[in-house]
Design a protein around this nucleic acid. Structure first.
Lengths: 205, 205
DNA sequence: CCCGCAGGACTGACTATTCAGTCAGTCTAC
DNA sequence: GTAGACTGACTGAATAGTCAGTCCTGCGGG
């Protein structure tokens, strides 16, 4: 049956796609966009170079696919963790903890996310803006928490949009240090400390 | 006279070196380490490719020199601005303002500083650690401000080392957003907002 | 149940290009 | 006249992307 065979093909395609994506993520994280060769990725995925080009049109396309997959996955993880709790305070703490935890389990991803982005050949206004909007999703998540806190009078009167960016930035900075391996403190300590700093900065009164 | 000729040679060397460095900085910032060619740099500096190799042994060496020069210059600028004022509050605000101002005047430098670092071919424990120590210099500058504030009872009781990292990170994150062009707010606004957030988070009581 | 064949998934040697780095030769300043 | 600063054509290596050919799978007829 046509439908069945199509489905089967789809399954294979999906399998190969994710297999290559997984390999690409590791290789890109280890070597960076330029030093990673398509042969490296193919080897890591256990296929020949030509096969990579059956599923992706270029090295750049593989890279972007790996990156987008990771960002989307992380965003879901953050939303999920924030949903689990109810007060503004808990939500903020959960967000920070979730991001650091996600980092801990996906160090390779963050390496390409933070250091490769903006390095790949791109025509202004296309790829860039796509990632910008993914970044903005996260800032909006923070802002929604702050807005709710503002309504509930849990946090002081401030510009939630600016504060959302500042908090996102702080978290980004902290994670960056970890990506570079320039900090050795325990993650749980970091979470508490950062949260404490932010909370004192924004809490009501 | 030998001395005179040596000095003259030194002057020429210094001129060429800084000429190439300046060109390298622009080219690397625009194209990134890999896409920037030595010919690009030579052209931008108005010399032939061979000349670049008279002053630097490799493309990587040019890159590292440009980067180190920029970091050292920025650090001096920060220290200078912080010296100008006396209270902890002023010092912190001055630090934030100085970094953002330096960024505004050296966008190209930050682009290579934030996005290229950790991407260049490096043997673990050599180059990396050199930049780490340059980074730590800045964190230590923040920490010295905090420690003084702590002694003066201007800020609450907290781990100044951790707080110094957090504040450095926050600033780093904010600047990163600007490097990527993902924020349009006025710098002066940002300075006030970030300072306010930090200050509320660390001020005494 | 077996055989053979068609379509397409897969391969990897090959091509075309891009550059880092070299070096034989030129030019210039003294 | 010469030392050495400077040049830029050249080489060798690396690698993105291609494509002619192989292999595997599943199906239809004997």
């Amino acid at each position: 049956m046509i439908t069945t065979s199509k489905t089967k093909k789809d399954v294979v395609t999906e399998f190969r796609t994710s297999e290559i994506l997984e390999a690409a993520r590791k290789v890109f994280a280890k070597k960076g966009f330029h030093d990673a060769t398509v042969d490296d990725i193919a080897n890591a995925a256990g296929v020949a170079k030509g096969t990579v080009y059956l599923y992706y049109r270029s090295k750049q396309e593989v890279y972007l696919a790996a990156l987008k997959f990771g960002i989307a996955q992380m965003y879901s993880a953050l939303v999920e963790e924030v949903r689990r709790v109810s007060t503004t305070e808990e939500k903020l703490r959960a967000l920070i903890a979730a991001k650091l935890a996600y980092f801990e389990e996906n160090r390779d991803f963050f390496k390409i996310y933070y250091f490769e982005l903006g390095k790949i050949p791109t025509h202004p206004g296309t790829i860039d803006s796509e990632f910008k909007s993914l970044y903005l999703d996260q800032a909006r998540l923070v802002e929604s928490i702050l807005k709710e806190g503002s309504r509930k009078k849990a946090i002081r009167n401030l510009r939630t949009d600016q504060a959302a960016f500042a908090i996102s930035d702080l978290i980004r900075g902290v994670v960056t240090q970890r990506v570079l391996g320039w900090t050795k403190s325990k993650i749980s300590q970091d979470v508490e400390f950062i949260f404490d700093l932010i909370w004192k900065g924004i809490a009501a009164q």
